[in-house]
């Protein structure tokens, strides 16, 4: 281990001991880059010098945490994905009297509002319960507010239209001077909650899980843990949607899923793997 690796190691341990956040199984390159960004902002010279303020100054830690995790998101990100969700998955979900949806790593909420709009247009919203989780309280608060900078609306509108949106996008928000506020009614069936994929457990009986552009930040072991967690949280025939460059190929649960639209990372859970294993045993 070189000095920098030692310093990062100790720093991550300190954070875990003090605040419970476990970053030890995150993909290294991005994490190291983000830590260096915090270091540059902090004015300290060495990574290890940040350990003292991290432990003793909660505000310093909050800033550090927001810097460390990547919250960049947008509405209807990857419009072809939302288009296929509408065409391939929604018709199946319509056959249920009630559905549970889990949007994981929602960041500032754009993804879960996109989902809410889609469900509304398909007449599913009123029989849906949507869990929106992230491990960062700062972004969760922003998600709960549903207020976004006005300049983001151009991209949002374009994405919405490309994703097969059926109405005028402007009906979903109220524009203020420099911000747009999304319709409160979209929040009615959304439960915002803190959930850490590295340490927390199963959310049961989901019909649909969206976890997009979160797994890319994890190493293979943590990816595998999380994919197992999703497997266990889904009902049989439930759907799992990942970011368009994420993969389940290396996971131990890969055989439990069939791709519905492989390119866009839409999978359906076909059977229960634990059951299968005990059947054999």
């Amino acid at each position: 281990m070189n000095n920098e690796e030692i310093e990062i190691n100790i720093l991550l341990n300190a954070i875990q001991l003090k605040y419970g956040y476990d970053f030890t199984q995150y993909a290294d390159a991005s994490l190291t880059r983000r830590i260096h960004k915090s270091l540059a902002d902090s004015g300290y010279n060495r990574i290890s010098e940040m350990i003292t303020p991290l432990i003793h100054d909660k505000e310093f830690f909050n800033v550090f945490l927001n810097n460390l995790t990547v919250n960049v998101t947008e509405m209807f990100r990857d419009p072809p994905f939302f288009h296929n969700l509408r065409e391939k998955v929604i018709p199946y979900l319509k056959t249920f009297p009630f559905i549970k949806v889990w949007s994981v790593g929602v960041a500032t909420g754009e993804e879960v509002y996109s989902l809410a709009i889609l469900l509304k247009e398909e007449g599913l919203y009123d029989k849906a319960l949507i869990y929106a989780t992230d491990f960062n309280d700062t972004v969760l608060e922003a998600a709960q507010k549903g207020i976004y900078p006005a300049q983001s609306i151009k991209t949002s509108t374009r994405n919405y239209q490309k994703s097969g949106g059926k109405h005028s996008f402007a009906t979903y928000y109220h524009a203020d001077y420099d911000s747009v506020i999304f319709d409160r009614a979209l929040k009615k069936n959304i439960v915002f909650a803190n959930h850490n994929l590295a340490t927390d457990g199963v959310f049961g009986e989901m019909n649909l899980i969206l976890c997009r552009n979160v797994l890319i930040y994890f190493n293979r072991e943590l990816q595998d843990r999380v994919l197992k967690l999703f497997h266990d949280s889904l009902r049989t025939n439930g759907f799992l949607c990942l970011g368009t460059r994420e993969t389940i190929d290396f996971s131990t649960v890969v055989d439990a899923f069939v791709p519905i639209k492989k390119r866009l990372r839409i999978f359906q859970k076909k059977r229960d793997q634990t059951q299968e294993i005990s059947d054999e045993g």
């Binding site: 993909a27 390159a29 991005s30 880059r33 983000r34 552009n213 890319i216 930040y217 970011g243």
Partner: peptide
């Protein structure tokens, strides 16, 4: 649409950082 990063174990990772 993604940043491309090289990991110590000579694999790639991706990110959607700004």
């Amino acid at each position: 649409g993604y940043h491309l990063l090289v990991e110590k174990d000579h694999t790639f990772s991706l990110s959607v950082d700004e």
